[in-house]
Design a protein around this nucleic acid. Structure first.
Lengths: 225, 225
DNA sequence: GCAAAAGTGTTCAATGTACACCCATGC
DNA sequence: GCATGGGTGTACATTGAACACTTTTGC
């Protein structure tokens, strides 16, 4: 077993979440060669010898999306000997939250890659390796964080309406929330700045725009179910 | 940098908690040689090439304590290039909860090791590497788990009194709890079996013994503060 | 009979949950 | 003027927090 490599290889893989077309989506890359040809996989890469783990994650993230300064958190380390064919690859997984309008997907001319695309997290294509398991793990963690920290703002533009915020929660939790209770709760947390601006474009009643008070990232939130 | 090794080395390190002498303690090994001679470190070891991560953790745990079937959970992966002198060592950390009466410390005749000993988690000796950071991380995780899952039972004998259970919570949270509220809460969770037995040895009023209902390990617990 | 730990309930405050109607706008 | 999403309050149930005295035993 493992004749081809005599050492562990260590990679980072990143579950990149965004909100796009009113859906919670993850960024996937279609593999252009075997093993797992045509299957989809999360962006990932080898960790350089003198590179901190978080830096490796940031680098991979930047290479694929050209975004910086996004929410990034280490998730879990997967290292089953059978997870990778013909090599022992241990992967430190991360999850990232980005605003879809910040993104510039890089369409590098890499023959190994067929496509880079967003996929709704609730209807994923066939995935390579153990990436399905990793994404499920990431979704669990994201839901967990959502109930205790003001993390949803990482997926929204600077200014947003309360309805947009609520929809974000609903997409992640995959569950409907009560409008009045949601607003009451959010406002009582004192993490929102009420602006004087309103949405204009819609052909409906304009909605007030809010922004997130930066220094409240560490504010714990009691449950919003 | 890193001339001595050209690859990443991957280890597991385990934060082993127990309750001993009415204190929350961790198992540490005093190093017998440089670097970090005389400093204390957590039990750890290299991951074998075709060994799953959890198995490596179980193996290291067994080697040091001769216990099996204990609570073991992956914690976090530390991989700062500067954390280890002269090598790039990435460590997947775990934390374990064991009953101190189950333990048989192995006093192997390893010249590299001076001593294997328990240390109170709130007054640790000087630690090697970044192990202080790892233990702090483990303590945070343990506290977190304590508030949402019935994990404290992993530190107690099969049968225990409510006072012992409360003391366990108090040691981990480093905070006093209200006796009546604590008992009310625990009983309302329906995860305890009330037995007909009582403590006998003490020279005080005997206390009723309880046991934990096994299949409630996944029961979430709302906050106990 | 006294020292020491076991055991037990009530009141109040805070938080969560369920629920329905009017408002402002563009067309 | 009507369709669409924005915005608002109250009543009730659940949960958490504070708090003190009686009971059982060994000595």
């Amino acid at each position: 077993m493992f004749q081809e490599t005599k050492t562990h290889e260590v990679t980072v893989d990143i579950v990149i979440f965004t909100i796009r077309k009113k859906k919670l989506e993850v960024l996937l890359i279609q593999r252009g060669y075997d093993p797992f040809k045509d299957k989809w996989a999360m962006p990932g890469g080898f960790i350089r010898l003198s590179e901190p783990l978080d830096d490796a994650a940031k680098r991979v993230l930047y290479e694929k999306t050209h975004v910086k300064d996004v929410y990034l958190e280490q998730l879990y380390t997967f290292g089953d000997p059978g997870r990778y064919p013909n090599a022992r690859v241990i992967t430190v997984s991360y999850f990232a939250l980005i605003r879809s309008d910040d993104i510039q997907l890089s369409h590098e001319s890499d023959v190994n890659i067929q496509q880079v695309n967003w996929h709704p997290v609730y209807s994923l294509p066939p995935l390579a390796y153990d990436h399905k398991e990793i994404i499920e793990h990431a979704l669990k963690r994201l839901r967990d964080r959502l109930e205790y920290t003001p993390i949803a703002f990482q997926l929204l533009p600077k200014k947003f309406t309360l309805t947009e915020l609520q929809k974000t929660y609903e997409m992640i939790l995959d569950k409907d929330l009560d409008k009045r209770n949601f607003r009451k709760k959010m406002i009582s947390l004192n993490i929102l700045n009420e602006s004087d601006e309103f949405t204009k474009l819609s052909s409906k009643r304009p909605a007030r725009l809010f922004s997130f008070i930066d220094d409240s990232m560490d504010t714990p939130i009691s449950s919003i179910l």
